[in-house]
Write a protein that binds this DNA or RNA. Structure first.
Lengths: 343, 343
DNA sequence: GTGAAAGCGCTAACAA
DNA sequence: TTGTTAGCGCTTTCAC
C-alpha cells in the first residue's frame, strides 16, 4: 500500500511537498502539483487516516447517538446523515442507546474513546444543562430536538427540528375543526422532557383554545414502544372511554398501533374514531385507511444536521438552530363527528 | 489528555511496560501491573486509537455494508451488530448502499479508505465470485445471505442466514395445505441472485410438489420498494387475476403493502385472499388481521455475524456458516379455501 | 516554492 | 521482568 513517502520519491520531491498538495495548501507550483497528483493516481495512493489523525491530534469522525431503535422514523434520517458525512469527508460513528441510557454520558464517553470531532444527537431529551454541554466537550447538534427545556445557552449548540408544539397544535386543531371534542392523546410520556412532552403541550394548547377542558383520563402513556403492551394499553383506553371520537398520536408508530387496537376491539377508523399523527414513516402509507399525518422532511433533517455541524467544525461557524416544516398528508383517518354527537 | 508516557513517568516505569499491561501481555509482575492500572484510573487515561492503529498497521473497525435502507427488517440486526462490536472492542462503520450500488466494489473501497479489518455484508447479492472475495481483501461475513449462487469457496467467507428456500417452501406449503392452488408470489425480483430468488425457488418447489403448475402471471415483481408503485403493481395483479386466493410475499414489507392494496380494491384478508410471508418485522404485528409470517431471529443474526467475524479476526478461526431457524407466528392472514372453490 | 526534521501516541523487537 | 528504541504515515514549523 503506497504511502506519502512512495509518492515523494516517485516524484523526486519531499514528503512535505506531497502533503501540501494533498491538503490543498497554496505555495506549490502548478508543475509539481500536477506531478504529484499524477503519481497519486498512478500508485493508487490512499491516505492513512490513522496517521493523519495522529498528527492532527483528532479524527475525521462524527458520532451519531440515537435513542430509540424502535422508531422506523429515524432510519431515513440516519441514512441521510451517513451520506452527508461521507460527502464531506467525515466518518459517521453510530451508537445506539437504550431507553434507559443517558445520551450525554454515553456521548461523552464516545467522544473521548473514539476521539470524535463532533456529535449529532438523534431523538434525545430536550433538557440539556450547561454541565451536559461541557461534558460533551465537542460541538453538537440536536437532531429532531430543539432542546429548550434546559438552561442551555442556544449559542452553545445547534439543532434541527420541527416546531413540535406548533405542529401538534396544528394536528389537534384539525380534529377540533372536524367537530371532535373527546380527543385522546397517545404518547410514550407526557413528562419525558422530550418530543412527546413538546407535542403534548401543543395538544393542550389546541384544546384550551377550543375551550375543551383537559381530561387526564384521555392522556394515554405507553411508557415504551413494546408492541404487545402498547396495544393492550390502547385497547383499554378505548374500551374504558367509549366517548372518545378522536386520537392524536404524537408518533406514527403509535398511531399505527392504535389503528390495530381499534380494530381489535371491533371499532373502525374514521367512522368511530379519527386518528391523526406526526412523522410520516413509510409504513403509514399502508394502513387502511391511509394514516392522516404531518410528514417530516426526514432526509432534509439529516442533511441539515451534518451541514451545520461540519460548518461549525471546519469553518468555525457559529451554532445555529433550524426549524423545518411538516407537510400534511391528508390520508383518510380523520372524519367529521356526526352532528347528533355534537354537544 | 493523558498519554501512555504520562502513566509511565507517573509510575516510574517504561512506556513499553505500560503498553504491556494495557495489552494484557504476560511477563509483567503483579506489582507493576497493579501500579499501572492504578495510574490509568488516576490519570483517566484513554488510549489513542489513531496511534494504536498506526503502530499496528490496522484499525479496530469493522465495516457494515447495508443494501436496502427501506427494509425495517434490518434495523434490529444493525443494532445487534453495533452492540456486539462495542462489546468486543470493535467500532462498527456503517455504510449504506443504494439499490443500484455494488456492495463488493463499495466494500472494497471502504476497506482501503477506512482501513477496515473485516466486513459484514447485510442484504446483499448471493453470487459472489472468487474475484469479489479477493477484491474485498479482508475476512467478511454475509449476513442474511448464504451466498451460494457464485463460485465462491465456502471456506473463503462466513455467513449467517436462514435457509431461504426451505423457509419459503414451508410458508407456501402452509397455503397449499389450506387448500390454495392459485398462489401468487410477491417479490422484488425473481432473478436478482439474492434473497428473493432463493425464496422464489422455495415457492416453486412447494408448487411443484403439490402438482400445481407455475403460472408466470402470478409471479409479481415490484422491482423496488417505493410504496406508491408497489401498491399499484399489486392492485393490478389482484384486479387482473381475481382467481388468486393466496399470496406468498417474500418480505413482510411487501406483505403489508399487499394488505393495503387488497383493501384498496375492496377485497379482504383472509376471506378473499390469504397472505403469508417471511421476516417478522415489528410493524407486521399491527396489520389487521395480524400478519402470518415466519419470524427471523433478528438479534441473533446480528450477534452471530459479529461473533464469527471477530473469531476469524482475533483467533484466526476458520470461516463458518450458520443457518438459523424461523418461528411461525400464526397471525390471522391465512384461511382455508371454501370447499366450493376447490378444483 | 521546496526540503529537512521533529513529533503525534503507541507497539514490538531487542537488550539488559 | 523491564527498559531502550526504532518506526508506523502524516503534518507542520523552520530553514533555505
Amino acid at each position: 500500500m503506497a504511502t506519502i513517502k512512495d509518492i515523494a520519491s516517485y516524484c523526486n520531491v519531499a514528503v512535505s511537498t506531497v502533503s501540501r498538495v494533498l491538503n490543498d495548501h497554496p505555495d506549490v507550483s502548478a508543475d509539481t502539483r500536477e506531478k504529484v497528483l499524477e503519481a497519486v493516481r498512478e500508485l493508487r495512493y490512499v491516505p492513512n487516516n490513522s496517521a493523519r489523525d495522529l498528527a492532527l491530534q483528532q479524527t475525521d469522525s462524527i458520532g451519531l447517538v440515537v435513542r430509540g431503535v424502535e422508531n422506523p422514523f429515524f432510519m431515513p434520517i440516519i441514512r441521510a446523515i451517513e451520506k452527508s458525512c461521507e460527502e464531506k469527508g467525515y466518518t459517521m460513528v453510530l451508537h445506539q442507546i437504550t431507553a434507559g441510557g443517558d445520551e450525554v454520558e454515553e456521548g461523552a464517553r464516545l467522544v473521548t474513546s473514539k476521539r470524535l470531532k463532533g456529535l449529532i444527537l438523534l431523538g434525545g431529551r430536550y433538557d440539556y444543562t450547561r454541565e451536559d454541554a461541557s461534558a460533551l466537550g465537542v460541538p453538537f447538534v440536536c437532531c429532531t430536538s430543539s432542546n429548550r427545556f434546559g438552561d442551555l445557552d442556544p449559542s452553545a449548540f445547534s439543532s434541527v427540528s420541527i416546531d413540535d408544539a406548533a405542529e401538534a397544535y396544528r394536528a389537534v386543531k384539525m380534529l377540533v375543526d372536524n367537530g371532535h371534542t373527546k380527543i385522546a392523546v397517545l404518547l410514550d410520556s407526557a413528562h419525558n422532557r422530550s418530543v412527546s412532552e413538546r407535542r403534548f403541550r401543543g395538544y393542550c394548547k389546541a384544546l384550551a383554545e377550543a375551550g375543551i377542558p383537559l381530561d387526564e383520563a384521555l392522556v394515554c402513556e405507553t411508557v415504551d414502544f413494546d408492541m404487545e403492551s402498547v396495544l393492550e394499553i390502547i385497547e383499554r383506553l378505548i374500551t374504558d372511554r367509549s366517548d372518545i371520537t378522536a386520537i392524536f398520536s404524537v408518533y406514527d408508530t403509535l398511531a399505527i398501533a392504535a389503528m390495530k387496537a381499534i380494530a381489535n376491539v371491533g371499532r373502525s377508523v374514521p367512522s368511530d374514531i379519527s386518528i391523526i399523527s406526526i412523522d410520516g414513516i413509510a409504513m403509514s402509507l399502508c394502513t387502511t385507511p391511509t394514516l392522516t399525518t404531518l410528514v417530516q422532511p426526514q432526509e432534509l433533517i439529516g442533511e441539515k444536521a451534518v451541514e451545520i455541524l461540519v460548518d461549525v467544525l471546519d469553518k468555525a461557524a457559529p451554532n445555529s438552530h433550524v426549524q423545518l416544516e411538516t407537510t400534511l398528508r391528508p390520508g383518510g383517518t380523520v372524519g367529521h363527528v356526526h352532528s347528533g354527537d355534537l354537544a
